[in-house]
């Protein structure tokens, strides 16, 4: 079982979008991965992408700065749609969005209709609420004043207290020091303060798995529960981590993604599927 990854690019609205494909073509639908704020294929799907690619075709997208002063979610939707249409001209896909990638994926699914047969929304949200607006306000204020505490603020919101308990303060600070705060990231943070894909979610027909995270301080799980309630063919499960599930417990995320991709019926519509008890 081996899988070679191929890096490619596509031009969307005059901007180069890089993406990566890997994995065998088989009876599973290709899985398309959309990362979240401050992420890319490697940082958010460093585990999920290669491990899923041993089992099926996977396409990961690096969202790119469209070059405009602010970003409209439609611009990211255009980037994701372009990659899907280029790589999977015929047939349907499973689309996964994590964090900010979740509303992008939901809106893409709405735009592409039956092309997105299955949808996985991890730590997502449909509409920015006051808690998130306040977070965004602090984020952007720290950014504007060039405050180095911004990086600490980001990791404070990213990881669960339980995860931090197994690290020292020095470890946590060293980890945050590696983060890269760019103008593109600031634009993502600004976009996060005005997300609204509620109407699209109400109309979605895709078979959807919503994954909430029990200790998520960025997109608390009530957002995921609301998505589970809103999307007609949705099921729900929860992982006991902070927002950074892709770092805290990537293997448990893999477990759900792999099962759902193999057979969505493992997650009955309208049902909460409990976490596996090892």
């Amino acid at each position: 079982m081996k899988s070679e990854a191929v890096d490619k690019t596509i031009v969307v609205d005059g901007v180069n979008i890089s993406y990566r494909t890997s994995g065998p073509v088989n009876d599973r639908l290709p899985l398309v991965l959309v990362h979240g704020t401050a992420g890319n294929i490697d940082s958010h799907f460093g585990f999920l992408f290669p491990m899923m690619a041993f089992r099926q075709r996977v396409i990961g997208i690096n969202l790119a700065d469209p070059g405009t002063e602010t970003i409209a979610i439609e611009q990211f939707v255009a980037q994701v749609s372009a990659v899907i249409n280029a790589e999977v001209p015929d047939g349907a896909v499973t689309l996964l969005g994590y964090s900010m990638g979740a509303p992008i994926a939901a809106k893409t699914a709405h735009t592409l209709g039956t092309k997105v047969a299955n949808l996985i929304l991890v730590a997502g949200y449909m509409k920015t609420d006051t808690h998130q607006k306040l977070r965004g306000h602090i984020w952007l204020s720290l950014y504007k004043e060039g405050n180095p505490l911004l990086k600490n603020f980001m990791s404070f919101n990213a990881f669960s207290p339980f995860h931090m308990r197994s690290r020292s303060l020095e470890d946590m600070l060293a980890g945050t020091a590696k983060m890269n705060v760019t103008p593109f990231l600031a634009k993502q943070a600004e976009l996060n303060t005005r997300i609204d894909v509620l109407a699209e979610c109400e109309e979605l027909q895709a078979r959807t798995l919503v994954v909430g995270l029990s200790d998520d301080f960025s997109c608390p799980k009530h957002h995921s529960k609301a998505m589970f309630g809103t999307i007609i063919h949705a099921s729900y499960t929860e992982i006991a981590t902070g927002h950074a599930v892709v770092h805290e417990r990537p293997a448990e995320l893999f477990y759900h993604v792999n099962r759902f991709c193999n057979d969505p019926e493992c997650y009955p519509v309208g049902k909460v599927v409990p976490a596996p008890k090892p």
């Binding site: 339980f162 417990r249 293997a251 477990y255 090892p278």
Partner: peptide, 11 residues
């Protein structure tokens, strides 16, 4: 704790 140990092992 068990789940945490397990999924760490899985990683």
């Amino acid at each position: 704790l068990r789940a945490w140990i397990f999924w760490f092992g899985e990683e």
